[in-house]
Design a protein around this nucleic acid. Structure first.
Length: 826
RNA sequence: GCGGGAGUGGCGGAAUUGGUAGACGCGCAGGACUUAGGAUCCUGUGCCGUGAGGCGUGUGGGUUCGAGUCCCACCUCUCGCACCA
């Protein structure tokens, strides 16, 4: 008598450790970038390596991308799945300041911790090609990218308003200002005017918008970009400023009369040229350059005070305060349509950065102008009448912004609004008072940061030669390791205090010169990193020509929709610029983009303050990476995210346990069961369709469903019934899949096998279950031949004791949906 | 305010094209095996009703033989943008 042998159970920790080693030893995750006839570049958004370590949100995103990449590999593609670290930026710098350590020592230790966690998660990442934005070998090329833009005249310097926190002594991004106060210390934020570097992304607005049509991207992401670019079609109109005293006597000032040198022109942008007859005043932004020139002497004090107030106010609260304020300049302009004199005001509801910084106000048909006109008692003239209205219909308490026909508009009365937009623009153009233009909301990209932790902008200022770009051969401009990297009161980067770095000979004339002390925005680091991955070994070029041609554009990019606008737009812009320079063959970097959802917990976003952050380490430890990965994907649709709960995960572990036991105990005796095989083929089909569609949750459900069929009634399964499941599950649970694949006697990696094919003939059955409805209500089911006729089905239904009860008398109508349903209307 | 997305059992979530609502999992209940079970396996599980049956996908209408799915009106939640002329 022999003692019962305990069957070997599934022990994730041992299995996963074993395969981590084997993958490393065999180079399973390395991609030979020179080979492969079906290159597939699977990109995921690289993380910021925070001190807290990997967040479940990161892991959710990476796992989803990894599954997609592994699946593509099983489809026969040569897959490249790189990863790196986005480690520059104010986030890292603030954290370093807080804990009193230097980012140069903090970041490497954070990265080590990230790497440990990422390895534990079983990603198919080719670590030989990793990128770290803070490595001089990387940011050398970030600086090179800057120079390419500079060369093309797409980088320029101008003074711009920034938010300044006098307590933190630092420039704040708009998101760091809450209700006019610094989000960190609560101090009232001021506005400062600083010289900053900008990229001319607005020159590319129309291309960035137009190309969206042909990109295979999540619709939500494309829509966000469209809104951000903000195209609006309208007209630029010219208003002559008129001195009412000098022009006294002429009842209507002729618009076409000779310009007088001292009478400036105000240009406005409007989307409603059709309402020109209702323009009863003009408004200039407080910063508008013409304001000082045209303000009348008796209004000067008030206008100056108003401008000073606007200049001091922080940018955020100025834009969020809806209460209208303004001052009359004392000047007048001529309405080119009516010839009448209309007052010119300044008000901060008009923004200098949009359009021309000036508007024609049509209070009858614009809510903001209406509010303003009401408050300051300005004329309101209706020029559009909706259905059932005419020129005299009172407006009530709101502006009329709807459709309609023109009234009070001279010979254009009765014209529909949409025709009038075109017609009036042409009419005004004919008299030299304007032309049709398209305007975009997209502003130029400010890349200057008056901080320490970023790549120095490669520019040198020389008293003799002016602004001199650092020659490419002298890159990188290394960020010096300085102890006092804390920003100070000056609004100038801490780099300026580092004398031996700051003072530099001019590259052109050799005389003493000074370095630019601003560093660049982190969004610049990430706007080109996908170009670098395949070319990491090259230190003589940013990206290798042949490698880039083979591997780019990125086949599929998966990432968070929080980057829908800035990161993705900047990446597209940089790619276009490099393309225009002849350095890239394509102008769109990401052929396909999919946004993943957000993991929440107990209905709320995970955050430290709520104390609901999940540490992935504990789960990886307790359940293993395979169960944890699969569980994360099972929570809900990948593109929507899901609610993380501890419950649930045991079900996924149980599924893997059952798969393990099925492989361990399977037999090669006899033949596989036909019914089980049919379900197997249906499962192969479903998983093969769901995975590329990112419907991971339903793919997992389908595999679980099959496992239930496979093991129903504790049956022992045939090898042919279970072997393909190992391949199906491999993208989700790679370690156990490798182990089971080896247990089945295969020498190589399961990822070097080919995805199982399903046999359509196997899916069909001779009989079907036909649902029978009577009057639209389900009354039962019948098993019938698959090609049953309507009469046969009806006869069978009548013969059925339960269904037959409802079928008294002749049916009024019978509907047969082949293969599905019979509905009898009585 | 503008733009996008979503409302389905106790819970997370499934439902090709308008065709069995609730797949799969959690939880719960019962059972088997056990000294034991928070292990494992099996069975059941939308709600009301003893039953036949009835009611059910945010609310109210409509189209249809048939609506979670299509149309109209509304409510709620959520994510972007927000004085953009």
């Amino acid at each position: 008598m022999t003692a019962p042998v305990e069957p070997i159970g599934y022990e994730p920790a041992a299995v996963e450790a074993r395969w981590r080693e084997r993958w490393a030893a065999r180079g399973t995750n390395r991609t030979d970038l020179a080979q492969g006839d079906q290159p597939f570049y699977a990109l995921m958004m690289f993380p910021y390596p925070s001190a807290e370590g990997l967040h479940v949100g990161n892991l959710f995103a990476f796992t989803g991308c990894d599954i997609y990449a592994r699946f593509q590999r099983l489809q026969g593609h040569t897959v490249f799945e790189p990863l790196g670290y986005d480690a520059f930026g104010i986030h890292s710098e603030n954290f370093a300041l807080k804990v009193g350590r230097h980012p140069m020592e903090l970041i490497p230790s954070n990265i080590r911790n990230f790497r440990r966690q990422l390895d534990r998660a079983g990603l198919m990442v080719d670590w030989a090609q990793q990128v770290d934005t803070t490595d001089p070998a990387y940011y050398k090329w970030t600086q090179w990218v800057f120079l390419q833009l500079y060369k093309q005249g797409l980088a320029y310097k101008k003074a711009a308003a920034v938010n300044w926190c006098p307590s933190c002594k630092t420039v704040l991004a708009n998101e760091q200002v809450e209700g006019g106060h610094c989000e960190r210390c609560g101090t009232a934020v001021e506005q400062r005017f600083l010289e900053q570097w900008f990229f001319r992304i607005s020159d590319y607005a129309s291309r960035l918008l137009g190309n969206l049509e042909r990109l295979d991207w999540s619709e939500t992401t494309k829509q966000a970009q469209r809104n951000w670019i903000g195209r609006s079609d309208g007209a630029r109109l010219r208003f002559r400023v008129v001195d009412p005293v000098a022009d006294a006597g002429s009842a209507a000032v002729s618009v076409t009369s000779e310009l007088r040198a001292d009478e400036p022109i105000i240009e406005v942008f409007t989307t409603r040229p059709d309402t020109i007859f209702g323009a009863t005043y003009l408004v200039l932004a407080p910063e508008h350059p013409l304001v000082p020139q045209l303000t009348a002497p008796d209004q000067r004090a008030a206008v100056e005070a108003y401008r000073a107030r606007a200049a001091k106010q922080d940018i955020v609260s100025r834009k969020t305060t809806k209460e209208k304020t303004g001052e009359f300049t004392g000047a007048f302009a001529a309405n080119p349509a009516t010839g009448q004199l209309i007052p010119i005001w300044v008000a901060d509801y008009v923004l200098m950065e949009y359009g021309t910084g000036a508007i024609m106000a049509v209070p009858a048909h614009d809510e903001r102008d209406f509010e303003f006109a009401r408050k300051f008692g300005l004329d309101i003239v209706r020029v559009v009448a909706g259905d059932g209205e005419d020129a005299r219909t009172p407006l009530g308490d709101v502006a009329y912004v709807g459709d309609g026909r023109l009234v009070n508009s001279g010979r254009f009365d009765g014209m529909p609004v949409d025709t009038a937009k075109r017609t009036l623009t042409e009419w005004l153009e004919g008299m030299g008072a304007g032309q049709a233009v398209t305007n975009y909301r997209l502003h130029d990209w400010c890349i200057s940061r008056q901080r320490y932790w970023g790549p120095p902008i490669p520019i040198i200022y020389c008293d003799a030669c002016g602004t001199v770009p650092v020659p490419e051969a002298q890159l990188p401009v290394v960020l010096p390791e300085i102890a006092d990297f804390k920003p100070d009161d000056s609004g100038v980067s801490p780099l300026a205090r580092h004398a031996e770095w700051f003072h530099v000979p001019c590259p052109t004339c050799g005389k003493p010169a000074r370095r630019e002390t601003d560093v660049s925005d982190t969004f610049l680091d990430s706007a080109w990193y996908f170009l670098r991955y395949p070319s990491v070994p090259r230190d003589d070029v940013a990206f290798d020509r042949a490698t880039t041609r083979r591997w780019l554009p990125v086949t599929t990019y998966i990432g968070g929709n929080e980057h829908a606008v800035l990161h993705l737009l900047y990446s597209r812009f940089i790619t276009m610029v490099l393309h225009d320079q002849g350095l890239l063959d394509f102008e769109e970097p990401f052929t396909k983009f999919r946004a993943h959802g957000l993991i929440i917990r107990e209905g709320a976003k995970m955050s430290k303050s709520k104390g609901n952050v999940v540490n992935p380490d504990e789960y990886l430890e307790q359940w293993g990476a395979d169960s944890f990965r699969t569980y994360l994907m099972f929570l809900g649709p990948f593109e929507e995210g899901g609610d993380f709960r501890d419950a649930g995960i045991s079900g996924v572990k149980r599924f893997l346990d059952r798969l393990w036991a099925s492989v361990r105990d399977c037999t090669t005796d006899g033949a596989p069961d036909d019914e089980v095989l049919r379900k197997l083929h249906a499962t192969i089909k479903k998983v093969g369709e769901d995975v590329p569609a990112l419907s991971y949750n339903t793919a997992i459900a389908a595999m679980m469903e099959y496992m239930n069929v496979l093991r129903k009634g504790e049956r022992r399964c045939h090898r042919a019934e279970v072997e393909p499941v190992v391949q199906l599950v491999a993208p989700f649970a790679p370690h156990i899949a490798e182990e089971l694949w080896a247990m089945l006697g295969h020498a190589g990696s399961v990822f070097d096998s080919r995805w199982p094919a399903f046999d359509p003939a196997r899916l069909a059955s001779d009989t079907i279950e036909l649902v029978v409805q009577v009057g639209g209500k389900t009354r039962g089911k019948l098993v019938v031949p698959k090609d049953v006729t309507q009469d046969q089905a009806l006869a069978a239904a009548k013969a059925d004791p339960v269904i037959g009860r409802f079928l008294t008398g002749a049916p009024k109508k019978v509907i047969l949906v082949p293969g599905r349903l019979l509905n009898v209307v009585v």
